[in-house]
Nucleic acid binder design. Structure first.
Lengths: 227, 227
DNA sequence: GCAAAAGTGTTCAGCTTACACCCATGG
DNA sequence: CCATGGGTGTAAGCTGAACACTTTTGC
């Protein structure tokens, strides 16, 4: 009468960053069967007495050295046949890592890891194609009414960089003037008297993201209009 | 070196229905410790070789007799101390059951179960207050751009009934004329030559929900505007 | 002085909102 | 005939989209 399944629980973390105007995801190459040699989303088993989000942060730190970045639970995948070794249910998370938070050294000690443009991802192990797809849909769905667009940038950034992130996530160009007007209207950016110069062009003003102001915005639910 | 946690996996299902213009949730009274005598969200262990959604549907059918209703994975709760008996991670789902799909007999054989107005829910066992809160936020958040508002109604319904469901979920009144115009603009309702008469008033036309038309709408992502 | 990217307003269309009266029926 | 809920259109304000030129710098 006790047919509780003997289940192993893992967390997988879809780790995104932005580089050279492309959205990238971190994948690791599997060194052991099953799917030996295939690319996979980094993940691992949940430890005793470890909260799920903490397991995800541990995974994230092991692979990237990054901590204190945006992390969100995505979905739980539990098809019985998703892992040929047995019943393994995985709680998938996704993380947004600004380029300046990446620790180059991290992850290099363990398995091979590499960043892939999300438009050019190889075949993935397990049901990880589905996991990645869910993460991308979530990210794209939320960019319009949440902070995720801001969480991929370094501490200081230009409005053009911000716009490039939005365009990268959405996969389409945005109008520069409209974009700037709307962002400023949100009142979540702090304007600095610092300027980024790059090559032979006019320097761009640097901004930073005021996370606290965004949170008060959310409560007003101005961003969730009734259709 | 193998510190994989010995974890029990359950599914909990937040079951909503609408009755008398109030949004209700099904709760069961616990007959055994821990939290003996407290009200809880129905749930149970995942079986060997059972997909998570199937476990949720099984739970749902046991409690309500309903099948083929709207079911969506909500969130996975895994705080180590959430169940005093040990490490129990739960994958929470929520279900929307139209009143005509409820089987009165179901659930009566087992534990005591009852419907509660979501605004008048008693103290709940475990972290179920948090689970219910997440379900309500998800439901309210999605009513404006998804089909959830349509999934709580019987096969045939009037526009006033539909509006009442939206108002119940959102917790605020909507303008009748605007509501009707927008719903008709969506083109997801089938108009029938049947009329509901109730008491001393003009009969109301009956409609049904064309789920397939809604799905093609979703792909057009007209409903997900960029801010 | 020219190439390159930064920065800046206005107009128009479409959508959202607010709002009040007549209609069909049962009792 | 009256009480009850069903059903319908229009005007005003607001929001989103389209669009082009000037500025600052490095070379």
């Amino acid at each position: 009468m006790n047919d509780r399944a003997d289940i192993q629980l893992t967390v997988d973390v879809v780790i995104f960053t932005v580089r050279a105007e492309s959205l990238r995801v971190l994948l690791v190459r599997r060194g052991v069967p099953p799917f030996e040699g295939a690319w996979a989303i980094p993940g691992g088993f949940v430890l005793e007495n470890e909260p799920l989000a903490e397991a995800a942060r541990r995974e994230l730190a092991e692979e990237t050295g990054a901590s204190d970045v945006y992390l969100e639970q995505l979905y739980t995948f539990g098809a019985p046949e998703r892992d040929p070794r047995g019943r393994v249910v995985t709680v998938a998370y996704f993380a947004l890592v600004p380029p300046d938070r990446l620790d180059i050294r991290a992850g290099s000690d363990a398995a091979e890891a590499a960043w892939f443009d999300v438009a050019r991802v190889p075949e993935l192990a397990f049901d990880h194609a589905e996991v990645l797809d869910a993460a991308l849909r979530r990210l794209r769905g939320k960019v319009g009414y949440s902070e995720v667009g801001f969480e991929l940038l370094p501490e200081r950034f230009t409005l053009s960089e911000l716009q490039a992130v939005f365009e990268t996530i959405l996969g389409r160009p945005l109008d520069k003037r409209n974009f700037r007007r709307k962002v400023k209207l949100l009142e979540v950016l702090v304007e600095h008297d610092e300027w980024e110069r790059q090559g032979a062009s006019r320097p761009a003003r640097l901004y930073s993201f005021a996370r606290d102001r965004f949170e008060t915005l959310e409560e007003r639910e101005t961003l969730f209009p009734f259709w």
